[in-house]
Design a protein around this nucleic acid. Structure first.
Length: 143
DNA sequence: ACCGGAAACT
DNA sequence: AGTTTCCGGT
């Protein structure tokens, strides 16, 4: 499990395709935690721009799950949970509401929105506003 | 489809 | 702590 994670990291480094800043992959707020978190996994898929299971939406930080069951299967594979489905994955997403990591875009099916400010705030308590945005990190632009 | 309580798991 | 599992309710 850990080996795979390290291999992926090496791949990222090797390809030079840094889609998100380091803190998006390795949260500083959970020191010693090697766990792959769901929001982390989602950013990874969105960063790859694979687009089959999940894509960015129209608004900043908004994403749309195009194939809920496929996304659930991918997540299940990552976590070693072969019986993962969208019902259970979406429960995990709902736990993010109180943590202010995500919220639901009401009325839009399978559509959620990242609270990047909260993510940034959690990782960097010293940064009250937006991070410095590099050209390759479009979705971290501040409105 | 979406919500959120409750209990269980790692 | 961050889910996973299950489920009754809207």
């Amino acid at each position: 499990e850990r080996e795979r994670e390290r291999e992926r990291e090496k791949e990222r480094e090797g390809s030079g395709a840094v889609l998100f800043p380091d803190w998006a992959y390795k949260p500083a707020w959970s020191p010693g935690s090697r766990q792959v978190h769901l929001w982390h996994f989602l950013l990874e898929l969105l960063g790859r721009g694979e687009g089959g299971a999940i894509t960015w939406g129209s608004e900043w930080g908004e994403f749309v799950i195009k194939d809920p069951e496929r996304l659930a299967k991918l997540w299940g594979e990552r976590k070693g949970k072969p019986h993962m489905n969208y019902d259970k994955l979406s429960r995990a997403l709902r736990y993010y509401y109180n943590k202010r990591i995500l919220h639901k875009t009401k009325g839009k099916r399978f559509t959620y929105k990242f609270n990047f400010n909260k993510l940034i705030l959690v990782n960097y308590p010293s940064l009250p506003t937006c991070p410095q945005v590099t050209s390759s990190v479009k979705h971290f632009n501040c409105v």
